[in-house]
Design a protein around this nucleic acid. Structure first.
Lengths: 148, 148
DNA sequence: TAATAATTGAGATTGAGTCTCAATAACAAT
DNA sequence: ATTGTTATTGAGACTCAATCTCAATTATTA
């Protein structure tokens, strides 16, 4: 379970470092995101917040998402015709994915060696990596067996 | 160098399989994409085509890009405030991407070490990798400089 | 050549996301 | 606490990439 208070504190610190303030509106958005892990898009988030009776404008939701993105609390998973899809990455252990083309199974994996190699590659370019997405598509062990 | 004729033939085949036709407009767009490798966005592509004196409407450019995407000739690298960024993947050697959160710049890179490590990781899982996508998000050298 | 079906283009339309700016809220200093 | 300073908010206007419309056009099939 994610520690809401720690989240709030960490976000406040990030804001302070940039001469910005933790307002009620930002707090509302942050809480909503931390408490319902998973993917979301800005407009749905806005509607959800409004449904709970809280008042945060669309503009503020968008502005807060930009801040949360820059601070690394959330990351962009992709963009669809319904808009940007974000996911909460705060307090979530990073992992990558293998995706079986045959059966659709998704295997999560983590490799420290891989992480370090990526860092090394970034450094070479003067690039400061914040997050990444790696998806390997292919055939899982089970499906490979079945093919033979 | 990319074989324009082979490209045309392959695209025609794809279209035929879907009961569609290779028109002059589609041909113009295809040629433009195959002959200038690299990243591009739909509107710039449209303007480039118009500059050469050829007449293809914006709508057709967008429609053709959708087709080329579905047929695997091009793939989406990312989205910026200037629109979707595509890249030609037909006959192009594989590479991965770094995406600057600040300015939207996309840096291509290739690391043999990385490819081999991924293979090794797959093997451990009994997974047979066919293709992959890696996007590292963060800040490019230029933007990091500007931040200071 | 005629019939059929896909395609085009100009401009209207959509919709995610941004911007404006006066009103308001948070913070720092006294 | 009060005041001054500065960041933030919200409603709605605005932007602009992308899609849709539909009559005119073009490619294919019979």
């Amino acid at each position: 379970m994610i520690d809401l208070n720690k989240g709030k504190k960490d976000f406040t610190n990030f804001l302070k470092e940039h001469g910005q303030r933790l307002t009620n509106e930002r707090s509302v958005v942050l809480n909503r995101i931390l408490s319902c892990a998973g993917h979301f898009d800005p407009d749905s988030l806005y509607l959800q917040i409004r449904q709970t009776g809280l008042k945060v404008s669309r503009a503020s939701v968008y502005r807060t998402l930009t801040l949360l993105h820059k601070s690394g609390f959330i990351s962009i998973v992709g963009k669809t015709d319904k808009g940007t899809i974000y996911e909460c990455t705060y307090g979530i252990k990073h992992h990558d994915h293998m995706h079986c083309i045959e059966c659709g199974k998704v295997i999560e994996f983590y490799s420290d060696e891989l992480e370090k190699l990526q860092e090394k590659i970034c450094k070479k370019q003067g690039f400061e990596g914040q997050s990444h997405t790696l998806e390997i598509r292919g055939y899982c062990a089970q499906c490979r067996k079945n093919m033979k």
